[in-house]
Computed example of a mutant assay.
Amino acid sequence: MASPLARVNVRADLWETLWSFAHRVLAINLLLALAGTPLMVALSLVATPWNYPIFFGLLALPLAPAAAAAFGYLALEDHRPPLSALFRQVPARLRQSLVVAAIGAGLIGVLAADVTVLAKSLPGAVPLMVVLLVIVAITAINALVLVGLRPELGLRELLRLAVYTGVRGWALSLLSFGVLGAVLVIVSQAPLVGLATLPGCALWVVHTNTQAQLTRITRRSR
């Protein structure tokens, strides 16, 4: 009896695309694992990490250059760019990505503290603060993508474009935000399996969504 797989007729370029995707995802997962090792070790040792936001925020900062490098790596036109091309992206995006991450983390920390205080004293203002919190988080994510895609932009132009793309393309922004949130939940429940497979896929979704937002804005401006 012939195997069912014998009837599968897949074009060579489709196989090339699939292998290229798998290659990039595994390479990005490796980089993120290296950048996040101190954070993961600290999380495994501390039972209540939310009591030490500054400490864990500092440990999470190396993930920003890794993510920006991953976005730049995904933008490369080669089908299977070498692993060295990914690691070369890190120093090129280091300064801008750290500044973006520091600004985003600082604003998110302030807004989160405001939400905690207002929930007790002025509950009616909480929804507005939550919306601002989501906008800041989406802007930070888009800014990291733009660091990878548009490294020639200055910080002011980069942040302005990140806010604009995030608000105008709010549906794709929420999708990216939701995918990253789902990955965090899965990784917290199954760290080894989650870290080995999901982060690169999630960053690919974020990268694709932000590129779609930029393309739409560029077409409208013409």
Results as ranks from 00 to 15, higher is better:
S176N: 14
V179A: 12
R160C: 11
R222G: 10
R220A: 15
R156D: 06
G154E: 07
W204S: 07
F55A: 12
L61I: 11
L192M: 04
V130S: 01
F56G: 02
V205H: 04
N142Q: 13
I217V: 12
D114P: 02
T197H: 00
V100S: 06
R168T: 07
S188E: 04
I28H: 03
N209E: 13
G57C: 00
L159I: 14
A190S: 14
T116E: 05
P127K: 11
E157T: 10
P53Q: 00
S97H: 08
V134S: 01
N51G: 14
A182Y: 08
P81Y: 02
G104Q: 13
F55I: 13
G106A: 15
Q211I: 10
L149S: 11
R156H: 12
L94G: 03
A202K: 06
S97Q: 07
L203D: 01
E157D: 13
L128K: 08
P65W: 06
L31Y: 01
L155Y: 15
S176R: 07
A182L: 15
A42K: 13
L58M: 05
Y52N: 13
V117E: 03
A162W: 04
L83F: 05
A202T: 02
V136I: 06
E16W: 10
A75M: 12
V110M: 11
A35K: 06
A171I: 12
A212I: 06
Q189H: 15
E16P: 08
A202H: 02
V185E: 09
E157P: 04
S20P: 02
L14P: 12
F21N: 05
P81W: 03
P199L: 01
G178N: 10
S121M: 04
A182P: 05
T139S: 13
